[in-house]
Each structure stands twice: as C-alpha cells, then as structure tokens.
Amino acid sequence: MSLPRSDSISLAVVAVSTLVALYFTLTGSFAGASAEPIYSFEQAEQSELFDLMTDEFGGFLTPTMSGSWAMENLQVGRKVYEQQCIHCHGTDGHAETYTANLLTPAPRDFGLGVVKFTSTPVGLPATRNDLLRTIKEGVASTSMSRFEGSIKEQDLQDVADYAMYLLIRGAVWTNATDRLGAGGLSPAQAFAAAMEDQRQQFDLALASSTRPKIPSVADSARGREMYFDNDLGCLVCHQVDASGGPVNGLDLWGQPMVARDLTKGELRGGDSPADVYLRIRNGVKGTPMPAMAAELTPEQIWDLVAFVRSVQEDN
C-alpha cells in the first residue's frame, strides 16, 4: 500500500512525538506533588524551636545532618523515600497519610524517635543497621514489604540513611518539646540539651547493638519450663497455648496491641533465631513486651528461642 504524502508526514510526526514521550517516560522520574510540610504552632517558643530544628536538619525535602552523614546520600535517600515510602510514612515521617489510615497495623510514625525492632537494649534508639534490616527484610504479616532485590543496594543504603534522619529528627523534636513543656528552659537551651541527649543515646546504641549468632544446640525443654514459669510472665500475654491475642491498653503510638501468635511462625520482628533472641533480650519497644536482658542469661534466652521455634515447628 502506498501512503498519500499527507499520511506519511502525519505518521512521521506521530513517530517523533512518540519517541520523545517514551524518552521522558523511560529516563525521567516522577516530579511528584511532595511539598515541604507547613506547621502552625500555638506557642511562639515552639515556632522558635522549629526554626532551630530547620537550621540543624534542613527541610524534609532538603535534609542535612551534622556528623558522618553524606548529604548526597540523604538527598538520594529522600528521592527513594518519595517513590517507595511516602504514601505510608508521609512527607515528614509522621505516617499521617490517607493510605496509612487504610492499613493495620499502621505504618511506623518516626516522629517519636522510636521503632519497635532493634538490636539495642530497651531505652536506646535503633541503629541505622536496624532500619536497614527492616527495610530489606520487611515486617511479616504487615504492609511493610521486603525491599531487598526490588530496589538497588545503594538505594537501600541511602533510604536507610534518610529513615535514620527522620528518626533522629523525631527523637530530638520530641525530647526538646518535652523539655520546653517542663518549663525552665529557653527553646535554644531545650534544643541544645536534646541534641546532646541524642548524640549520647545514639553513641550508646551503636556500642550496645547486638547481633547474636545462631545457636548450634538449644534445649527447648528448658525453654518450655521457663515459658510456663509464672514469674517470667510469658503466659500473661502469649497464653498457655502460645496463641497470643489482644492485650489491654494501647502502644506508644496509640494503636491497639496484639500479643503475637507464636504458633504461626510469622513474627513481625523476624523469624530467625537471632531475631527471636533479640526480641526476648531487648523487648519490643513501645509495647508491653519486656526486655529480659537483666532477668535471663544469654543461655536461658537461647533456651526460650529454642522453645519458640519448637512451638512453630509443632504447628
């Protein structure tokens, strides 16, 4: 079929515009509707504190942080965050998004500076590697999917940096506003004290972070005895048949709590023996799951780990 000249010209125009469009689609990235959040504070002191926070941490879209953080990594991390995380965790990490309202459990609010699953003792914040682990492996039975393999390793590292930035920023803000609320300090003093606390806490967290090895042999019978020991309190929440269930009260973020069903083998902090060890040793932060580091020896904790694993295998 020979095409009339007008159709040939039209086809050429269509082809060129299609190629240009595909170029934009394949090489461009989404310039989304993300905008720097605007807050209104009732007290002038809080506005002043927020200005100090902005001087130290920059905007959420243009993050900066003193210490060993590479700004370019934080900025790339922010871009990855906008693509992968923002719809659940929100522009400022407070998880106040509509999508978050549609999910149970609610996505983590970084604003309090606390996350549940860490390698650090109770009272200390998470390390960057704790966040990286959660980003890579996800949280079982929740909408927090595993990202290892679906995005580049460097992007994982950068978004972990940015998540750590949100966590530190949240911790400092919470600490400083608490100090302001207690009275007696100016915003600058409260901010300086919160920054100092943050440095000490995160240094301590790094020093005390534990990554235990997997045990070769552990006696689940001893673990079973401990589980049924009323003094230890496992039964109070996890029940005699280890099926868990609702727990009275709300967690730190105001969400209803459910003691994990140990028989199903879907533990949100991770199923591996090392993960279970850390949950027993360090607890689940912001929830009644206590840290047993002071009550139990490492060997006893491993016995409990062996019991928990045997419950999963039996079911």
């Binding site: 269509v14 515009s17 299609t18 240009v20 469009a21 595909l22 170029y23 934009f24 689609t25 394949l26 090489t27 461009g28 990235s29 989404f30 310039a31 989304g32 906008e82 693509q83």
Partner: peptide, 17 residues
C-alpha cells in the same frame, strides 16, 4: 506515572498524540 516511575511529560505528549 501512576507508579511514580515515569515523568509526566511522557504521558502528556503521548496523550495529545
């Protein structure tokens, strides 16, 4: 575009075409 991967310009040009 909906999955925040492609630029808006790509969809716009193709939509007009």
């Amino acid at each position: 575009l909906r999955h925040k991967q492609g630029a808006f310009e790509g969809h716009l040009i193709l939509a007009i075409t």
